[in-house]
């Protein structure tokens, strides 16, 4: 339980820290696709009797870098290429898991939807180290990653190592997906990257504050999710995602309510000053 809680908290912080860049790029669903690819990695690991977490990280990273190279080309066929990669990934994973010694449908479900009991101390060590690396990279490179996601051409003209930063994000996506697979599961990983960001940006005005708020929401949803799922005997991943969605709904409703109250309180002066006035002020 403590182990599961620790793993969940790390992922609760790491997933939105990465997810904010994916959302900014309008690539909200990419995490889901990489999750499909990671399943093949799980299959490879089980088949070779190696740690499925390590093999999933490697296969997912190769997949994510491939996706990034397709995106960089900007081809219209990129959409189809992604579909091929993702469905190939999940089909390959299902077949490989079936071929392995550990071929129970139970083990597949563990990876797809997450599981608390099977998290071993070694798993937690891997999750902690990789998760910390993700968080540090995403926070430390925020200005550069923000610039690349906000306006890639401008970043290029600024002489930033755009390709290296994109590959960093691709590899980070793969790592986050894989470490989250034991708690949230491959099919719900993406939700934890995206929903906290969507919830936070209902009320925030800037990128930095959105990132901080999204990480806080992710942390709370993951922590409470694990506790509730243990009490209510529900799957932890789905429980966490439902909690995150509940936060999203609560913030959306709250923000709408707050706007109505504020409009009542100060009716007229909501209009922005005209440009002419701004001129004189300057």
């Amino acid at each position: 339980m403590m182990r599961a809680l620790m793993g969940a908290l790390i992922i609760g912080l790491a997933a939105p820290a990465l997810g904010i860049y994916l959302v900014q790029r309008r690539l909200s669903l990419i995490g889901d696709g990489i999750g499909h690819v990671a399943l093949t990695g799980v299959g490879v690991g089980l088949l070779l009797n190696q740690s499925p977490v390590i093999s999933a990280v490697i296969v997912a990273a190769i997949g994510a870098v491939g996706v990034e190279l397709i995106r960089e080309r900007g081809r219209t066929s990129g959409d189809l290429a992604l579909a091929l990669l993702f469905y190939g990934g999940i089909a390959g994973g299902v077949v490989l898991v079936a071929l392995s010694d550990d071929a129970s449908s139970n083990s597949l479900v563990q990876y797809l939807f997450g599981s608390l009991i099977t998290t071993s101390p070694e798993d937690i060590a891997v999750i902690a180290v990789l998760g910390a690396a993700v968080i540090v990279a995403m926070v430390a490179f925020r200005p550069a990653l923000f610039a690349v996601c906000n306006d890639e051409e401008y970043a290029r003209v600024s002489g930033l190592p755009v390709r290296a930063l994109n590959i960093l994000m691709a590899v980070t996506t793969a790592v986050t997906v894989t470490i989250a697979m034991r708690t949230v599961g491959l099919l719900l990983v993406s939700a934890l990257m995206v929903i906290p960001v969507a919830a936070a940006q209902q009320v925030t005005r800037g990128f930095r504050t959105t990132m901080a708020a999204a990480m806080a929401i992710g942390l709370v949803a993951a922590g409470v999710g694990v506790v509730v799922s243990a009490e209510a005997d529900t799957p932890p991943g789905a429980t966490t995602v439902i909690l995150a969605l509940a936060v999203f709904v609560a913030i959306t409703v709250g923000a709408a309510g707050w706007r109505i109250v504020r409009r009542r309180a100060h009716p007229p002066h909501e209009v922005e000053p005209p440009d002419v006035v701004l001129q004189e002020v300057r």
């Binding site: 904010i20 959302v23 900014q24 790029r25 309008r26 909200s28 200005p143 550069a144 923000f146 610039a147 996601c149 906000n150 306006d151 890639e152 051409e153 401008y154 970043a155 600024s158 930033l160 960001v197 940006q201 925030t204 005005r205 800037g206 990128f207 930095r208 959105t210």
Partner: peptide, 19 residues
Amino acid sequence: GAGSGVPATVGEVVASGRL
């Protein structure tokens, strides 16, 4: 730029110019 899925302040956008 097209990447405006997440809010960003004027100050944050201008700060990119320092990179």
